[in-house]
Design a protein around this nucleic acid. Structure first.
Length: 273
DNA sequence: CCAGTATCCTGCAGGC
DNA sequence: TGCCTGCAGGATACTG
């Protein structure tokens, strides 16, 4: 489900709704997510503490719990955060519930269990195996200067490079496909076979696409929703993702799709070279 | 080291 | 209707 714009939208919602609230109780059950969810640990550390900060790094959310530490969250493919009244019906695959001081609950739901919920002690972020390898934030200044030289020395298809979180943090399949369409670059073109000038332009376009998507509240394809239940409206602006078999919006050529970098990738064979 | 594939899991749409 | 297959917004362990 969630790439950077969706996670950013979730973050803003959590920050707006939950800042300063206390965690009064914790429910759920230990289960195998991508990292094991340890409910005993969370139950011992969280109750009585206040939610003091809300951050994002790539596709990860960090919920600061005072000076005790931070809750690391990743939504995987199907994860959701929900802010609901305590008496709201509990969805299947609800793995963690934080009971809040205003009578509402923050619930983490993830049917496919590719997500992560983990507890980070203060100062442990720089050692975390997932966080520590992340490349730069594409919405921060400087991405156009940092990213191109790194891509230039790689032999993988540019599509795979955009998905590599070590090079740039937060891009997923939808926005990689969109950025390449907008940049007019063939997704199979190897990084080392693209001029620095084009890579610089692509980097700027990545930022552009992501920030436009943030402004629309992300992309709802199927079931993505904000913690308050709202949808993301960037889907109506998608020019390439999921458009195989349909005419290119730029040149009318029928778009194609193949699996590149392990993920279905649509492109226009005429205007992406 | 690097590049490419297999794998973890559930739900849903489509074909028969 | 029911059963089967394939596919889905991600990350990483493993292979060559």
């Amino acid at each position: 489900m969630p790439e950077l714009p969706e996670v950013e939208t979730v973050l803003r919602s959590l920050e707006r709704e939950l800042s300063g609230l206390s965690i009064e109780g914790v429910r759920g059950h230990s289960i195998r997510l991508r990292r094991p969810l340890d409910l005993d640990q969370l139950s011992s550390v969280l109750p009585g503490r206040r939610l003091t900060g809300f951050r994002r790094r790539g596709k990860f959310l960090l919920l600061d719990v005072g000076r005790a530490g931070s809750l690391l969250c990743h939504l995987g493919m199907s994860g959701r955060m929900m802010i609901v009244e305590a008496n709201a019906e509990e969805l299947r695959h609800t793995h963690l519930v934080l009971e809040l001081s205003d009578g509402r609950e923050l619930r983490y739901v993830d049917p496919r269990r590719f997500g992560v919920i983990d507890w980070l002690e203060p100062g442990s972020e720089s050692h975390d195996p997932s966080l520590s390898i992340l490349g730069p934030e594409p919405l921060e200044p400087g991405i156009e200067t940092v990213l191109p030289p790194l891509m230039k020395e790689r032999r993988s298809p540019i599509k795979s490079l955009l998905l590599d979180q070590r090079l740039v943090a937060g891009v997923g399949n939808i926005y990689a496909v969109e950025a390449l369409w907008r940049a007019g670059i063939h997704p199979r073109r190897k990084g080392c076979h693209i001029s620095l000038a084009r890579l610089e332009r692509l980097s700027g376009i990545v930022r552009e696409v992501l920030s436009e998507a943030v402004a629309e509240g992300g992309t709802t394809i199927k079931d993505y929703a904000t913690p308050e239940g709202d949808f993301g409206y960037f889907a109506i602006r998608l020019n390439a993702y999921g458009r195989q078999g349909k005419p290119c919006r730029r040149c009318e050529t029928t778009m194609r799709a193949e699996v590149i970098g392990g993920r279905t990738t649509a492109w226009c064979p005429t205007c992406q070279r």
